[in-house]
Design a protein around this nucleic acid. Sequence first.
DNA 1: GACTCGTTGTACCGATCGGTACAATCTCGG
DNA 2: CCGAGATTGTACCGATCGGTACAACGAGTC
Lengths: 188, 188
Amino acid sequence: MAKPVVDRAGLLPLLAEVFRSHGYEGATLALISQATGLGKGSLYHFFPGGKAQMAADVLAEIDGWFEVHIFAPLRESDDPARAVAAMVGAVDSYFRSGHRMCLVGVIALGASRDTFAAQVQDYFKRWNDALALALRRSGLSASAARRRSTDALITIQGALVLARASGDSRMFGQAMAEMTTRLLAKPD
Amino acid sequence: MAKPVVDRAGLLPLLAEVFRSHGYEGATLALISQATGLGKGSLYHFFPGGKAQMAADVLAEIDGWFEVHIFAPLRESDDPARAVAAMVGAVDSYFRSGHRMCLVGVIALGASRDTFAAQVQDYFKRWNDALALALRRSGLSASAARRRSTDALITIQGALVLARASGDSRMFGQAMAEMTTRLLAKPD
DNA sequence: GACTCGTTGTACCGATCGGTACAATCTCGG
DNA sequence: CCGAGATTGTACCGATCGGTACAACGAGTC
């Protein structure tokens, strides 16, 4: 059992970056091979399902990361304000203050959206549910919590799109700050 | 000079839909040929620059539409509140209440983003400038106007992404309503 | 009816796509 | 040091990619 440079788990982040910056269609096996330093033989050894499995596994890993670092804390925290602040911090750090794209969003907009629709939908639903739960615990009504929670997810995705499109990542931080204010404002 | 079914101008909307729903990479010439009913011969007759020119021309046409129906009214209206309301109405109608994707955003996230970066950047900048100008005229400071304007564009793009990803276009209308409230709120 | 010129379909091009086959290589338990 | 099984690179597959060449077709003009 050799672990020359990377094992299967260490492969996923590399794949993720390729998909992030080229999209599912744009991420050719040649590109993936180059980014990982692995030939097709190795790639198909680790991912017998080919490109689709690579993307699915990457999405699953991302989902797992968010579950541990964002969803679960939101659900379990007994201090909603702190949980929200922690989420914003984690999000800003994960997306490198707007320089990094959201792979789930990229996939959702790409041509391959149907293939991964279930995973994408689940990701956003669990995030929305977890955040809404935290907001409810902070005293908001169910509907207000849901409204603010959805607004937050919209802001995050939109800020990533606009930051990328405008080539100006500063607006991401600004948007995160305003979003936090809105999330933690008194019930209206 | 025969105009069998469509002329060059009538072609652009058809192309736009193909790019919208498949992305730039996913929009193969076979798909385009099928959607337009035109063979490659005709396609390359109208667009000697090939796929890249098709996309660039489509982006230009979209830009033109927004210039006439959204940017110019924002700049020229003497009633900012009405102008903003008109913008929201036009946006909701253009994006079919969240069912239709924003091609500029799709391009911005795709692998071909660099090819069209200038057009994409210009589109959002002109929109942002026009909206900020309208908001300034309604009494907001320059910085507050810019902040709200950027927030609005972020909300529109984010709502489109999330509506598509969640398969729930209702949240688009909801987001537009909240965005309008925020845009027209008293200076804070 | 010949000429022109815009328009069209089709055959074809080399390159590259995702994927498969397989033999060579490596690592480790025994 | 030797087999077993994991891991690797490379050659190759048919399909499809974007793009080109070109001959045929169409409708007007004279």
